[in-house]
Design a protein around this nucleic acid. Structure first.
Lengths: 204, 204
DNA sequence: ACGGTGATGTCACAAGATGACATCGTCCTC
DNA sequence: GAGGACGATGTCATCTTGTGACATCACCGT
């Protein structure tokens, strides 16, 4: 411990990773994803193209670094919660809402607008969701939940989260993400409940 | 209409598109997706790389051309079915099962094994599912179903289809896809039904 | 100082993807 | 049935993505 910095991290440029992420987000917003070259991103961050590829798998990945943390939080929450499989997943996502997204609406909106403008980025987002789903389902199985039930509870829970998230991000909304998740979960239960003759309970 | 052929299609080589798809599937199976170059595919089909790109958006797309037909069938089925939103979606996918997938288990298995071996292809599959979901939800809204309900019914329906499909493709299974969809739908209802006995709904 | 270590820069290159332009069958018209 | 329009295809050039190989350079402990 000679004195100052924690070894093993940034050396020349402080927080190369963070700078690249910031540069990427900026450029994607300014010119769009396709019009931004990896070399551009690296240049704005004062680094080389090659360094970018050492830190990120590909160009899109610069926007999806938070996914790892999110997955960790969800998995932990699933492991610690005692309830119905579906309820467990919902509870886990509520924890994510509180611990990760609370108070970051503005940042989330910017990110989301960039993603929505590019099919390639949407594709990557879907993939992240997919791997998240796999991880959650695995966590449920570790608790003794059956294969199919684990998958169905997970997918349903993610659907709820997705819809609640979209509603949260939408303009003119002051409800918290946590509360929205509860609301949407209730709606999902209504939608999938018993076949019903044909009463057509007018949704709108 | 001078006489024989339907104009506007293949000229030099008959059914260039189909030949490229076949060549792509073959090569992906033989050497894998990454190890196959677009030039290889075109060569095996007796065409040029540039022609491939005129017919398909990118390399992956050669495997996902059936998606369009599938979407059409689902949309039509949704429009023609009278039932609960969720039931409607389930019915629509059952029709897809009968009209498109019935009797093609072997082909589906080959395709699926190729996709499962490659993250990039999985990504594309997810995207196809996403656009399918959007189309189904839109079809539901056209029938007067509310925004949220439409989305939840659609996503739930797709989840059911996905699980049933996976079960169908899995080895050692002789049940029809249609029947599997019904089974899984029932399981989903069970999983998402009421919060259960000992009230632990205190999370807020 | 000195060498080791790890992060970064430089160079080279295969493959993906696309625009511009040349070709060449096929069909239409006279 | 010759000639031109048209559309599908081939050719060429170019940019970008992504990666391997190797040189550098700062920082570390000794």
């Amino acid at each position: 411990m000679t004195s100052d910095t924690i070894v093993g991290m940034a050396r020349w440029q402080p927080d190369a990773r963070g700078r690249l992420e910031a540069a990427a987000l900026e450029l994607f917003r300014e010119r769009g994803f396709e019009q931004t070259t990896v070399t551009d991103i690296a240049a704005r961050a004062g680094l080389d193209k090659r360094t970018f590829y050492r830190l990120f798998g590909d160009k899109r990945e610069a926007l999806f670094s938070g996914g790892k943390l999110l997955e960790e939080v969800v998995i932990k929450a699933v492991a610690e919660t005692e309830a119905t499989p579906f309820e467990t997943v919902i509870a886990a996502f509520r924890r994510v809402a509180d611990e990760i997204f609370a108070g970051r609406l503005d940042m989330v909106r910017v990110r989301q607008s960039v993603i929505e403008a590019n099919p390639e980025l949407q594709e990557r987002e879907l993939r992240k969701m997919g791997s998240l789903a796999a991880a959650v389902a695995a966590a449920l199985r570790d608790k003794g939940v059956g294969e199919t039930t684990a998958t169905l509870a997970t997918e349903s829970g993610i659907t709820v989260f997705r819809v609640a998230f979209a509603r949260w991000v939408a303009a003119g909304n002051d409800a918290s993400l946590t509360d929205l998740i509860i609301e949407v979960a209730a709606e999902l239960r209504a939608v999938t409940s018993a076949p019903e003759p044909h009463s057509d309970l007018g949704q709108s």
